[in-house]
Design a protein around this nucleic acid. Structure first.
Lengths: 209, 209
DNA sequence: ATCCTGTCTGGACAAGTGTCCAGTTTCGGT
DNA sequence: ACCGAAACTGGACACTTGTCCAGACAGGAT
């Protein structure tokens, strides 16, 4: 009865309601997780090896990380979120802006190829921790395309939701197909840029390839 | 030295180069797999429970099924492939034909919701068996959209590959998002139909919403 | 009827995953 | 300097997954 293992909520928010000591442990685990991922890939990585690299016992690691998948989702969400928003050339057409957004996003993802490979299966899990992160990641995608779709001259008018949905669907699809190895993450960029051109061909009238 | 466990290739084609006895065992396993999937869902299903339901030892099951994921991929490929090709109304626009194709595909998928939920994560695995099936499934998707895109009056002219790619990306994306629980498989149909309208808005000139 | 080839069985096995708990360390407050 | 609460440790645990092998079994050819 002298312990209370779980920080804050039992299986929740890695970065919420942690005191400084816990925050430090969590940070070490995240960093070790990314290093381990780069070093051995997502297949070989286990929560225990991450714990070891972080200089922490497996039991401790499990109080912060519900699972391997949770770690991957957390790392990916952080990676994709930690980027300054793009600024678009004033003269760019909608198509050009959205294509830029797609390229930026893919570039960011490709920076950590192992993470990209790890996250797609991870996000499909049923863990509540993962579910929360899925929403955050999805929101980030929507936010980026939404921003790119807005006319710089009139940023208050909302983009067509059907177009936005379709763009996000192609992005998810590209992520899935790259995750499956149907095409490389390098080719992903071209595919998405082409898809953007197709999708906006009916809407945007000055800039589709 | 008295055995040769693996049928044909060590870890390959479930339906190729099997003699009648093996084919019978394989069939029993596939049927039992689908029943088990319906009964307990893909989380609880294990190769061992499928073996038991099929009246076969676990060791035998493992000579046909490399893994749970392999089973799911095999079942899904069979399910999606075993359907008579749609016929389209002669007067239908390209958009209408493609929307019909999307609806048919989703309808087919929704027939076995547990299978749909199981297959998305399964297809992301690295097993060679799964990789083979991924290609077959992908080809089926492409084939259906390709057929729907062709003008019934001039079926020999190939559809724009960029449009075809984009359609397949949205389909994969919808599958992924439904697999993640972002929307239900019921909503999937609407989303895809809307996406088709957006994608073909620039191309097809008589039938987009 | 017998043999031979190949399929199937039963059970043991190693490896990995997440849980649990009793005990130790750390650190802030008094 | 001490005390108590909270974080961490080490190790055992139950469970699942896929592999392996020696032997039992069936079915067709001779």
């Amino acid at each position: 009865m002298s312990t209370s293992q779980a920080p804050a909520a039992a299986t929740s928010a890695l970065r919420q309601g942690l005191n400084s000591r816990q925050a430090e442990t969590a940070r070490k685990l995240m960093e070790a997780g990314l290093e381990e991922l780069r070093a051995v890939g997502h297949e070989a990585l286990t929560v225990r090896t991450v714990a070891q690299r972080a200089g922490v016992s497996p039991a401790t690691a499990y109080t912060y990380l519900a699972s391997k998948n949770h770690l991957f989702a957390e790392l990916f969400a952080e990676h994709i979120t930690d980027e300054e928003p793009a600024t678009y050339d004033a003269g760019a057409s909608t198509t050009q802006r959205v294509q830029q957004a797609a390229r930026d996003l893919v570039a960011r993802i490709v920076e950590e190829p192992e993470l990209a490979a790890a996250v797609t299966p991870a996000l499909l899990g049923a863990d509540p921790d993962v579910a929360r992160l899925r929403l955050r990641i999805g929101a980030e995608f929507v936010g980026r395309y939404d921003a790119a779709l807005r006319d710089p001259a009139r940023p208050e008018v909302n983009p067509d939701p059907a177009v936005l949905d379709t763009l996000v669907l192609t992005l998810s699809g590209a992520l899935l197909q790259a995750g499956m190895g149907i095409f490389s993450y390098d080719q992903m960029s071209e595919r998405l840029v082409a898809a953007v051109a197709v999708i906006l061909a009916g809407t945007d009238r000055n800039g589709s390839a």
